[in-house]
């Protein structure tokens, strides 16, 4: 039995200090007995949508496995796969893979190899996550473990926090807004619920 609940979707709008739209974010999630899936679509921050996917599977033999993915629009994704805490993380570009332990994530070896994977996948990802983090700073939010690929890519460049990030606020995006239907569909598609 693997009963799945219908996906939940949250639509949000990020605005600047004057209330002007910066971007919209759709978060979709679905849950079944052995699996949790989520997909975030950030639209308007960059030329392409920034898409984050996360899947957590529970298996009685192997325990919990987490699969994370980050991509820009329809471009190639950078993937991360990890098991129980303390186990090795596998990062994969379309061309190669690199496996590392979390405890080593600040080491140059991990930073260098992740950087290579980003170059193989999509060099624009680094600038994309820098923009994304700046927006999070502006909202006074930290990047969460749900956004693991962002955390990993931020570790590559070790950029210091922006001294005065531009003010950003989050507010609900009405289902009636003209952009809502497309954004909702994009989030469902990213979740694999087309």
């Amino acid at each position: 039995m693997n009963a799945e609940e219908p996906p939940k979707i949250t639509l949000e709008r990020v605005v600047d200090g004057r209330g002007n739209r910066v971007c919209d974010i759709a978060k979709a999630s679905a849950k079944s007995d052995n699996e949790r899936r989520s997909a975030w679509v950030v639209r308007g921050l960059l030329k392409s949508d920034l898409v984050l996917n996360r899947q957590v599977r529970r298996d009685s033999n192997t325990g919990e496995s987490t699969f994370d993915e980050i991509r820009l629009g329809d471009r190639a994704p950078l993937r991360f796969e990890s098991g129980a805490p303390g186990s090795r993380v596998t990062a994969a570009s379309p061309a190669s893979t690199f496996r590392y332990f979390d405890v080593d994530v600040t080491r140059l070896t991990v930073r260098c190899n992740l950087s290579r994977l980003v170059q193989e996948t999509d060099p624009d990802l680094l600038n994309a996550i820098a923009e994304y983090e700046l927006m999070k700073q502006g909202m006074g939010e930290k990047v969460s473990i749900e956004e693991l690929p962002v955390l990993m890519l931020l570790a590559i460049e070790k950029r210091p926090p922006h001294p005065s990030p531009p003010v950003r606020k989050k507010e609900p995006l009405s289902e009636d807004a003209p952009e809502a239907a497309e954004l909702r569909a994009a989030a469902l598609a990213a979740l694999g619920e087309e």
Binding site: R99, F101, T109, C112
Partner: peptide
């Protein structure tokens, strides 16, 4: 595998 000389003894490098 490409690794930094300073990371030679790390778990990541050893396992790879």
């Amino acid at each position: 595998l490409e690794y930094f000389v300073d990371d030679f003894g790390s778990r990541t490098v050893r396992a790879s």
